[in-house]
Amino acid sequence: MSTATRSLPRTIGAHAILLTYTAIALFPVILVIMNSFKSRAGIFGAPLTPPTPKTFDLIGYTTVIGQGDFIHYFQNSLVVTVASLFFVLLFGAMAAFALSEYRFRGNTMMGLYLALGIMIPIRLGTVAILQLMVASGLVNTLTALILVYTAQGLPLAVFILSEFMKQVSDDLKNAGRIDGLSEYTIFFRLVLPLVRPSMATVAVFTMIPIWNDLWFPLILAPSEETKTVTLGAQLFLGQFVTNWNAILAALSLAIMPVLILYVIFSRQLIRGITSGAVK
């Protein structure tokens, strides 16, 4: 094609811009991880070079693992994220099924009511949420966080999942009804397995803000017992302002699990976004 020759400079230009931006996006992450493996002299002497045998040092990591109770914080984060995710997906899918499958009075109103939470952030209710948790004795428990994150994740989950459940064939469900399956069996055995890909999308969307949240752990569960890894890292970093090895190591430890998960699930996440889940 004649356009091929003309578009060569344009292709190079596109790659140049994208590469530049990729560098900007990755540079801070790489910089932090790279320097976390260096000695103090290495960090300040040559911050932009990768660790050499001369500057390689794990002192930061030994400090972090010795001082902070990171394994415990990690467990807390994991429990909160997994439990909230489970409830968001289960309750969200059930509600989405009810809204997309049955015609009943108030269906649209219920859908709008549940969609309200997509636009209005749950944070604005913090004052009353704290009072509620104090009254029910749930302050400084992981249950409080799980409840809040479940409520936070539900609106978007219901919205996205009901879009997908509308696409499940009616014939299949009706065939199940003729065979005498109950509505519950139809939902759990027929519909849920069919919408599994969209559940994965919702899971990723729900998981990232929960894992990264600082506001609610800070307010509802700041005790040593219930600290999440984000809050733990925040406090730890505040204490070690002058110990650069420890800070860089702690940051790297916080980055790496998320980064590994992201590399594993990025295909799923990006397919979820680009498949029109949030159009």
């Binding site: 996006a25 992450v29 984000t230 916080a254 980055i255 998320v258 996440l269 990006i270």
Partner: peptide, 11 residues
């Protein structure tokens, strides 16, 4: 390019 978006504010 999406990497920074998944990191927490603390990091």
């Amino acid at each position: 390019i999406f990497v920074p978006t998944i990191l927490s504010f603390v990091i």
